[in-house]
């Protein structure tokens, strides 16, 4: 493992590092199903930097949207006006997502577990929740049908939990060949990008293990911020810091 710079020396925030690391998961030509918030920022950063031909699909029915600013909502005219095609909501979920035309699904989560299962429904008991969250939205079928899923969220023991209060969207269930047994077509979550590092799905067990820490972050910090007993990959590395180009593109987008 290479030497990490100290936090003070860094020219970027943990959130910016998270967005940059998420953007790097996309390559040109990838067809990506995007939600508002961090996923939209990361996908647009990829399009503005290393992956100009990434195809962005928003669940409002906008296929191939090319916004030049971040839309405040998936209903924004910047998406429909710049899209290659705009289709109805039943069509986007049936012909495009369910039919297997999407490579990457970007999902956020209120809670996630070590197998990449996601809760966006409730904290506490379903019938008498401590916190009622927005619910499923498009996530369950994105998690089912995209070739692969990337999860982005801020690292904390309350978010990265031993056991979910509710399974809204399925990752790898209880691990192993769970998805194959259920007949789920996509390969499921492959990466979990947080503000502290990158976790990747181990091939056999399908458990998420720490693959890289962001510059300035120590491995014990990540373990402490994880609600399950996080395992660390043998070849754990330091995430490549954001380039000037990535930071410039990100900041001009966020500021736009």
């Amino acid at each position: 493992m290479t030497e990490s710079p100290t936090r003070e020396a860094l020219k970027w925030t943990n959130d910016e590092m998270m967005t940059v690391a998420a953007a790097r998961e996309l390559t040109s030509g990838t067809v990506c199903f995007v939600g508002i918030g961090l996923p939209s920022t990361a996908a647009n950063l990829a399009r503005a930097s290393h992956a100009p031909d990434v195809v962005l699909i928003y669940e409002s029915g906008c296929i191939g949207a090319k916004p030049d600013r971040l839309p405040p909502s998936i209903g924004d005219g910047i998406l429909s006006r710049t899209a290659d095609a705009v289709v109805s909501v039943p069509e986007i979920f049936a012909y495009w997502l369910q039919a297997g035309r999407v490579d990457v699904g970007f999902l956020g989560a209120a809670q996630v577990d070590r197998f990449g299962n996601i809760n966006t429904t409730v904290v506490g008991e379903y019938g008498s929740p401590q916190v009622r969250l927005p619910g499923a939205g498009g996530a369950p079928e994105i998690a089912t049908s995209c070739s692969r899923v990337i999860i982005t969220l801020r690292h904390s023991p309350r978010a990265m939990v031993e056991k979910l209060d509710f399974v809204t969207s399925v990752g790898h269930g209880d691990g192993g060949d769970f998805r194959a047994r259920l007949g789920l077509p996509g390969r499921g979550p492959q990466a979990m990008i947080t503000d502290l590092g990158v976790l990747r799905c181990e091939p056999e067990s399908r458990e998420f293990v720490l693959s890289s820490v962001h510059p300035g972050v120590e491995i014990p910090d990540v373990i402490e911020a994880t609600g399950w007993a996080l395992r660390v990959a043998d070849d754990v590395s330091v995430t490549a810091p954001p380039t000037d180009g990535e930071l410039h593109a990100l900041r001009s987008f966020v500021g736009a």
């Binding site: 979920f93 049936a94 369910q98 429904t121 379903y126 499923a136 369950p140 079928e141 089912t144 049908s145 509710f166 399974v167 809204t168 969207s169 399925v170 269930g173 769970f178 259920l182 007949g183 789920l184 077509p185």
Partner: peptide, 12 residues
């Protein structure tokens, strides 16, 4: 649809 398999939505 191809969906809901493995989720708690299918239960509640």
């Amino acid at each position: 649809l191809r969906g809901y398999a493995g989720t708690d939505l299918a239960t509640i």
